[in-house]
Amino acid sequence: MRLKRSGASALLLECRDGDEVEAWRREVVRRREAGELRVIDIVPGARTLLLDGVEPGTDALLSSWRAHDFVGVEHREGSLVKIATVFDGEDLDDVAARWSMPRERVIARLTETNFTVAFCGFAPGFAYLRGLGPEYAVPRLDTPRQRVPAGAVGLAGDYCGIYPTASPGGWRLVGRTSETLFDVRREPPARLTPGTRVQLVAT
């Protein structure tokens, strides 16, 4: 992990991969809850963890942590969220062609993958799910759709994502769910938070 500054009161932790990001995220959350450090926002990215709203000296504090105690260490699995999904996306055949397999095997691949929420972004509650692996990466649509409905399940890069609300979107759509993914009256408002394990279940 490499530390970079992002302004006067934020640090960006650069990690090797999503696993290391998740290990650091969990550790920072744990130590914040234990009162060992103060930070307002803990924001994972694809290869980074942003700590926004930290006090001076936090860089030295992080450097003093023994990373091998928590990076690469098996942890008790977090909560598992099952998302009931209808696999009838407009781009399902396109994805099948790109993966050189029939639709049925695409669906099997997606339902057998143990996804983890890597990070959220784009819109409140939009989770980037990792777990497919780089060999299944697909490019975004050249021309994004003007409107993707809420609950649409899509692929872009090697991430899977579910649109919490209707919006324009460039991900390749493989299915849909009727689950509510973001609700400001719930705490936390997002169903899929960083670190959450996710399984797509065909219905």
Partner: peptide, 26 residues
């Protein structure tokens, strides 16, 4: 006020990774 301090994105510069150009237009 600095830390608390606080315009919808002009298209290209924002991370429209899930929305692409259409999100920018919106």
């Amino acid at each position: 006020g600095r830390r608390d301090a606080a315009v919808r994105a002009a298209s290209r510069a924002v991370d429209n990774s899930a929305g692409g150009a259409a999100a920018g237009a919106r």
